[in-house]
Design a protein around this nucleic acid. Structure first.
Lengths: 306, 306
DNA sequence: ATCATAGGTTGAGTATTCCTGACCCTCGTG
DNA sequence: CACGAGGGTCAGGAATACTCAACCTATGAT
């Protein structure tokens, strides 16, 4: 009988039954209300009886629908619990979650120096600036960009992240003069935006360097530092970025700081290593953390700024 | 979490786990072993760990797989039970299961005479010659073609079904002579086959009429009397059929009995009305049975042969 | 050593299912 | 009358599931 179960229709129904709303069920299932409507219709067709009473302002379970929702819901909950438990099973390997630009511009270039000794390491680029809700059984670490603190987890600050303008050498040489902050008014400004939480903007930076009266409309907004860096390298403007992701590009010369070491904004945002508050980290995680701390120390030596 | 469950993969896995065989799971699920293999692979990919140990001669659950199979299986069983219970809920209407040819050639032409009074009647053509396993909550009747008895249900014989040859009038007039059974050797024979149970064949008929020595290779086999009747009407040969489904065509003259009323084979197969052994039939079912018995009586009057 | 068989795997393509977007409906409210 | 809310459905597209065929390994028979 299992083979004949209309599983997708039953799931849509159970969620719709719980809400007594196709709209809310759709939101929970990440589909449109039309999709829920169809699935419920399909179920009613197979059962040859309705499960909802319908009227213009919504649906309500009928008696048969309620019975089915209760028992089918129990089955689905059991199934979900089984799956969740399986996901939490401990397994070999390491799972690391870190901001995409950090991964690309800081972690990956150094990661070759870490010897996983044949164990599986999963590197997950994650744009969220919140602490992760780990849901698999792999040993897990997260590197997060934010202001901290990070409640409920073990929080180890890695690197502070002062912010400053960067641009391509060509723009500096051939573009409008760029010697003082006021000169930025004649340039295209590139910014990395994030509204929640609000990372520092050009406005913050200008206020900090005493150029509060300088108008500085930003023409370009990007959600990733990677993209802002790429556009700056391409000469399309001056980007306000953090030193961690910019360091290698500055070292290599494809980006320059137009005002030299001056005018760094001491951003409250920085990178932290987050680990679960409880439990003994497995050896692979311990080795990774040791390696990471060594790289962080090396970076600090080569780029004073904390 | 329910929205993220890979339901189809979990179902394939649970069945494969029960059998510890993708082949057997495939058979139960009515798919190919390749489909089961893919679903299990998909599940393992999402969980990031294997659930089976594999070798060349088959699969075996590993410990993690066993745990998941047990709890997920419980969830699916719960879901299946909920669905089954819903299917069994009593509902208005009547469900009638009957052989396709009987429906087409006997029941439908008469059914206009039955007043359902606005209630829903579901007529299900069913080729199976076994007693039905009713699985929905509608009041249910079945008409079955067979030899009986039908254990565990209430069995009411309706019509016996002597078998005899029929052909088109044109074939009789213009074809090879067809006056005695031996003449059949010069004709194309049409037969309705069913191996389980074995309904009477031309061989049985010839033996019965004392023509055991007459060779009679059957050129055409059909699984439905409908098709055999149609081919006979089209003049493509002589069909051995039962009187119940042939009656209307004989009455209308599009088919004739080449040997007249002679040589009817008293087949042990006949039509029976089957109802559940327990429970009080609802009024609609009672009315339908009364109507059916009336039609059966009328048929018997017009076509002596019991 | 070769061949046949069994069970599982996978590439490529097709079939089926599921979903979306847009437009429609009824009902209630202002 | 207009608007909003919630559900229903057509038509088309996206995603998933499946099939078929060819492949693999291991085992047993010759």
């Amino acid at each position: 009988m299992i083979e004949r179960l209309p599983l997708n229709a039953l799931r849509a129904f159970v969620v719709a039954a719980r809400h007594e709303s196709f709209q809310q069920a759709a939101a929970e299932l990440h589909v449109t209300a039309g999709a829920v409507s169809r699935q419920v219709k399909e179920l009613e067709s197979r059962l040859a009886f309705p499960v909802f009473e319908r009227n213009a302002h919504g649906v309500r379970l009928n008696a048969a629908g309620r019975r089915l929702a209760e028992s089918a819901g129990a089955g689905l909950d059991r199934l979900a619990e089984a799956y969740r438990e399986a996901q939490r099973l401990p397994r070999a390997g390491l799972s690391i979650s870190a901001p995409p630009s950090f991964v690309q511009h800081w972690l990956l270039p150094r990661l070759a120096g870490f010897d996983a000794r044949g164990e599986e390491v999963a590197l997950e680029a994650s744009e969220v600036l919140t602490q992760p809700e780990w849901d698999d059984g792999r040993a897990r670490l997260a590197i997060r960009y934010g202001t901290g603190p990070w409640p409920g987890v073990e929080d180890r600050p890695l690197l502070s992240d002062p912010m400053f303008p960067v641009c391509s050498p060509a723009l500096l040489e051939r573009g409008p003069p760029l010697q003082e902050p006021a000169d930025l008014a004649a340039h295209t400004l590139i910014h990395v935006s994030c509204t929640e939480p609000a990372i520092p903007t050009w406005r913050h930076w200008l206020d900090h360097v005493g150029a509060a009266g300088v108008p500085a409309p930003v023409q370009w907004h990007y959600s990733l530092f990677s993209h802002a860096l790429d556009q700056a390298i391409a000469g399309r403007g001056v980007a306000l970025v953090g030193r961690v992701v910019a360091a290698d590009r500055l070292d290599s010369g494809v980006l320059v700081r137009p005002f030299g070491e001056r005018y760094a904004f001491p951003s409250p945002f920085g990178y932290s290593l987050i680990t679960p508050a409880a439990g003994e980290p497995p050896p692979l995680a311990v080795r990774f953390i040791d390696w990471l701390m060594g790289e962080v120390a090396r970076f600090r030596e080569g780029h004073p700024g904390d």
